[in-house]
Design a protein around this nucleic acid. Sequence first.
DNA 1: GATGAATGAGAGTTCATTCAT
DNA 2: TATGAATGAACTCTCATTCAT
Lengths: 217, 217, 217, 217
Amino acid sequence: MRSTTKPASRPRKTPIQERSTITVEAIIEATSQILVESGLDRFSTDRVARRAGVSIGTLYQYFPNKETLVYSLVERYLDARDQALEDTCKALAGRPVEELVTGIVNSYVDSKLDHIELAAALYAAAMETGASAIVKRTSDRCCQAISEALAYSTGYPETITKFPAVMLFGSMGQTTREVLLLGGNPQQIQSLREHLAMLCCSYINSWLSEQERPAKQ
Amino acid sequence: MRSTTKPASRPRKTPIQERSTITVEAIIEATSQILVESGLDRFSTDRVARRAGVSIGTLYQYFPNKETLVYSLVERYLDARDQALEDTCKALAGRPVEELVTGIVNSYVDSKLDHIELAAALYAAAMETGASAIVKRTSDRCCQAISEALAYSTGYPETITKFPAVMLFGSMGQTTREVLLLGGNPQQIQSLREHLAMLCCSYINSWLSEQERPAKQ
Amino acid sequence: MRSTTKPASRPRKTPIQERSTITVEAIIEATSQILVESGLDRFSTDRVARRAGVSIGTLYQYFPNKETLVYSLVERYLDARDQALEDTCKALAGRPVEELVTGIVNSYVDSKLDHIELAAALYAAAMETGASAIVKRTSDRCCQAISEALAYSTGYPETITKFPAVMLFGSMGQTTREVLLLGGNPQQIQSLREHLAMLCCSYINSWLSEQERPAKQ
Amino acid sequence: MRSTTKPASRPRKTPIQERSTITVEAIIEATSQILVESGLDRFSTDRVARRAGVSIGTLYQYFPNKETLVYSLVERYLDARDQALEDTCKALAGRPVEELVTGIVNSYVDSKLDHIELAAALYAAAMETGASAIVKRTSDRCCQAISEALAYSTGYPETITKFPAVMLFGSMGQTTREVLLLGGNPQQIQSLREHLAMLCCSYINSWLSEQERPAKQ
DNA sequence: GATGAATGAGAGTTCATTCAT
DNA sequence: TATGAATGAACTCTCATTCAT
């Protein structure tokens, strides 16, 4: 992807009319399809416009440059994931840690399974195109949600639960990807859920028991 | 980067004169620098050649196409990581699991720290360019090494240690990346090592104690 | 010219606005000029675009690759020749052979004279670039037309007039080229017409008289 | 083929030593093979050198540029054809025209058959690369030989036999090529010989009888 | 608002040729 | 004399983006 030096601006125009909304949706859908089918190479504004059934000029009326297209998609996808995770955290905050952690794991795995191919394609796309800022922002949001829920459930202040939250979030990401690469059949997914729950719970328990006797350290 | 279907062939010409060995090294070094500085966009064969101080023709005498440049680098980097991990596994195979797992964690973190910027840049680069095949291959190699060492240390057959190995390997990857994104100062790195060791050890212990009483499950 | 195996596809885009029709004509005209002036070497898409007064991008919007440029021209030129020959054949079919053959000769020479330089340049160009398929196709078309007219005028079935048709067509091609190479002044052209008519007529007459007494052979 | 502006110079060095001769022969043979196999595109000095088993530097020691390679081959091939034709003309000069003309036809067809593939490849190659000068020169030589023999056999001065000679020579070229394109099986070749002989003889006879009564014209 | 023709910088790659070894 | 590493101009083609209609 040719990286122009322009800052990644938000969509140029906020669709207000009905028709515009349809157009924008068609464009984003086309973006998604092409990214999944062909990856970031072979991804061109021209193809997106044609697939969306609009002219290239129209596309540029709603998305000021190529990057914005990918950004919109990445953001939309990650927002959904974050939202689900936050909801889970809010729903389970205050419950026993093991229950909380297991809930988080399942929410995370579920959100990946929802859009398997898109997840993989976006992951690669996000690395390029400077979308890593978005990735960082949403990662932070997830860690924040986990950290808060953890603090609520354990009684520890958030300053302390921050790091374990990062560890939990980090553990889920690549293990899930790895298992999907292994084939991702239902049985493997089930194993993933169980092992991930076990891994996260035992880690949190270890960490908790260590917190109880900090003097020894 | 255009991912054509052409196979990522090995360097086109094996240097025979000493002069050309220097040239090849210069090209690889330039590839690395530009990838780190500017990412996969803005990465062009032209820039690489100029940075390496050779003509574009010379570059193409040793690397048949652009992809091969990135491949060479990814492969070289991952091979080093794999080698270190394998060495650690071999050295610690048969020792108590906790010692083994801690050793693996430290080896992994060390290899990332060795080339911090390069690691990040290559990670992104590898996602595109079809180098994901290489990534998969080397991941498998790591999981294999971990799995074998785990089998040796626990007495369980490798068929059983396979999945936990994948979980361990997966856990290390993104957590490390996440912490480096957080800034990666020495103190954070230290925390990472401790938490990662704790996470991995407690997971393996949980898993072991579950294995002992499979009937109850 | 690199003859890749990609099929010589038809122009990429059919002009819909009037503006683009002009553009396409300008490009074909430029192709013709450059081919005539400089031959197939020194023929580059860049030069064509510049000569046509359009950007290189515009050129590629209508011609998917370099070969298509030459193909279009070859085809257009040969089609005109074939059409003229077919018209002549149809008009003279049924008339005495001598009249028919003389008509064919003149039609052929006329079509060459119409675009003297272009004919020479295209001839060379067609040999390369895989346009030889087009050459073969149009040659066949000419031979077919001649063969049919010959059958009609002589009463022999077409299976028998086929070969003489090829001989007639073949005789005209290089002799005309040869005479043009000699300078091609009006007097030479006139001699060419006369000798070619004589050559073709006497050949057909010989062949006819041989057909009448096949037993003796 | 990139046309450099340099004049087409003769081979740089005349091989005097045994070894050099072998090298030069190997290079010419490689040129021939590659031209036949792959045509004028994909023909590169590099490939020729590799095929000939010599270094690119050595190639340039005997052939100052790429064109010279093709020239040598074209010249060598056409010289052989011309020589054969001249020999035939000398041998048959003074014999009855029909015998002469038939001999010429067979000599011409034979020389084409000798190197069928090479003939086709060279024909295309000669059109490009400015070798057309050579083609013209050797064509002239053939026409000259035919013209002289015709003069000798008919008693007419050479100024008069010149044009018929061109017509005869021209008739043979494309008809032969055309028949080879048709498949060129032995039966077709035999037909070609017969029809070509008939065509040429009847033409010459017509021309002769016209010469006898010029007043009527 | 929508269209699509036009733009042109820039990318990847080739290959004839030179020259130090 | 032979080698082959190095050169770089030239070439084909793409694609993000603009703007007249």
